[in-house]
Structures are given as structure tokens and as C-alpha cells.
């Protein structure tokens, strides 16, 4: 079992009273990259937020590098939660501990820190790495030359693509062992999109495994080893790289022929 980098067993979760996904199991081997493909609004992002500890899981377990990330057990009954939520019960998972273990989540449409400059943000990321070996500023700037030019600009003045680059750069500097990228190319112009795709590809070539959510099968194919189909809060299919069909066939599989 020790060759699994991420081992998710029977994970269920959601927001306070609404369950979003249930009983998800996911095993990622050391060095393996996976893609998650599925329609919007079916809980992919919520699942990833639970993995990285932003949301408490309802039940199930998350192991990263052989280490348990969540506290054992299920979340308390509704009555108990109302009675002492936060005051007596501790969080069932700590996002800081997950990040420090090396599971770094680059959020979807990330605003990061709007009033900080690019350079300040990156220096915070390297502070957060606390001596673990992350990417250096020079390496990140080589990957995203634009960030060098934009160093002294505040993040809220950046374009969507540049923000995404800063998010990814910060994630890389925070010493990831596995990088979660949640729709990094969402809503970008084709040119910027290509730039980001190239960057992700070169990160991948340098040997960092990723969990990538994207709607473009052709792009996913270049990056990942295994594709998971996500549908109605659970994985509905799993296929290796060689069996991956084209976009149209995938859509048919998810929605039926007449979608």
C-alpha cells in the first residue's frame, strides 16, 4: 500500500445540510497523474475542497503519503453539531496540515490575495513551504515569464490568466508532492489558455504528478495517465490513457446518446 500517494476511502461530504458527494474511493499511485472529467455542478470542486481540507468530510478517510489527513470517525449528529459546532468539536481536517504534507490545491478561479503584489504572494508561498523543497522564484519565473514582468503589480489588477498563473506558481513554490488543478483554463482566451496548458505540460514532464480537472479531453490526454468520470457526486467510470475516447463519445457516456 505504500506506493499509493493518495488513498481516499469511502469519502462522503457536502455543505452543512446538503450532501454533495458520497462514498468516493480514489487511489493514486506514486507518480501517477489523473484527470477528472464531468459536468458542471456535480460536485467535483466540492470533492477537491474536501480533499484539501477546506470542508470537513462527513465520513470516510483520506490518506496522503501513508499519513491519515482527517480525524477518525464520522461527523456528529445534526443535534450535536448545532449544540457545540466549533466550540467543542474540533475540525475534522486541517487544510494547513494537508498543504504541509504536500497536497497543494490550486483553486478554481482563484482570487488569491487581491491587495498583495505578485512578488509578495510568491514570497508568502515560499514562507509557507517552511524549509521543504519547493520551486524557487527563478524556476517559477522561467515557467511563467509574465510573472517576472508583473512582479510589482497587485493581484486584483491582473487578468484572469495571469491570476491563474500566480496561483499555480504559488502552489509550486509551496512544495507540492501532488498538485491539484481545478479547471485552470476556465474562461481564458485561446492564447493564454495555450500558455497555461504548455506550463502544466512542462510541470508534468518535470515529474510532478497532478490531479487535473478540465473539460477538454484532448488536453487531458496529454497530461494524465488515468481518467475518472465524475457524475452525480460519484465516480461513474475509470479508464486508462489508451482507452480514452474522444470528447463526443465521453459526453455520450455521461449523458446518453441524446444529450
Amino acid at each position: 500500500m505504500s506506493d499509493l500517494i493518495l488513498d481516499v476511502r469511502g469519502l462522503s461530504g457536502g455543505y452543512d445540510t446538503t450532501q454533495i458527494f458520497s462514498d468516493i474511493s480514489l487511489q493514486i499511485a506514486e507518480g501517477e497523474s489523473i484527470g477528472i472529467f464531468g459536468p458542471n455542478g456535480h460536485g467535483k470542486t466540492t470533492f477537491l475542497k474536501t480533499l484539501s481540507g477546506l470542508i470537513d468530510p462527513w465520513s470516510g478517510d483520506i490518506f496522503f503519503c501513508g499519513q491519515r489527513m482527517n480525524r477518525e470517525g464520522e461527523r456528529g449528529s445534526r443535534k450535536m453539531r448545532n449544540f457545540n459546532y466549533g466550540a467543542v468539536t474540533r475540525r475534522r481536517i486541517d487544510p494547513k496540515a494537508v498543504a504541509r504534507a504536500g497536497l497543494i490545491h490550486v483553486q478554481q478561479g482563484n482570487l488569491l490575495f487581491p491587495e498583495l503584489t505578485v512578488d509578495e504572494t510568491l514570497s508568502i508561498a515560499s514562507t509557507a513551504a517552511r524549509g521543504r523543497k519547493g520551486w524557487t522564484l527563478a524556476e517559477v519565473r522561467e515557467l511563467f515569464p509574465r510573472l517576472g514582468e508583473r512582479g510589482s503589480h497587485k493581484i486584483r489588477f491582473l487578468s484572469g490568466g495571469e491570476r491563474q498563473m500566480v496561483s499555480m506558481a504559488a502552489g509550486l513554490m509551496a512544495a507540492p508532492k501532488l498538485l491539484i488543478l481545478d479547471e485552470p483554463t476556465l474562461g481564458l482566451s485561446p492564447k493564454v489558455r495555450q500558455e497555461l496548458c504548455d506550463a502544466i505540460l512542462s510541470v508534468r514532464r518535470l515529474g510532478l504528478p497532478v490531479v487535473l480537472i478540465d473539460q477538454d479531453v484532448a488536453f487531458l490526454e496529454q497530461i494524465i495517465d488515468t481518467l475518472y468520470l465524475f457524475d452525480h457526486g460519484r465516480f461513474s467510470g475509470r479508464m486508462g490513457k489508451e482507452e480514452m475516447p474522444d470528447h463526443q463519445t465521453l459526453m455520450d457516456m455521461l449523458f446518453g446518446e441524446a444529450h
Binding site: G53, A99, R100, I104, L111, F113, T127
Partner: peptide
């Protein structure tokens, strides 16, 4: 300063700060 910067980061986006591993 580094802690000062991290404080501003935490003030602006708690979630993103925690995801980078800062102790919010």
C-alpha cells in the same frame, strides 16, 4: 516583514492562505 505579509494574506483570503500551508 514575512509574518506581516502573511497576516495581510490571511486577512485577504483565509482559504487560499490555508491551502498554501499558512497557520491561519
Amino acid at each position: 516583514s514575512r509574518p506581516g505579509r502573511s497576516m495581510r494574506a490571511v486577512a485577504q483570503n483565509q482559504d487560499a492562505a490555508a491551502l498554501l500551508g499558512l497557520n491561519v
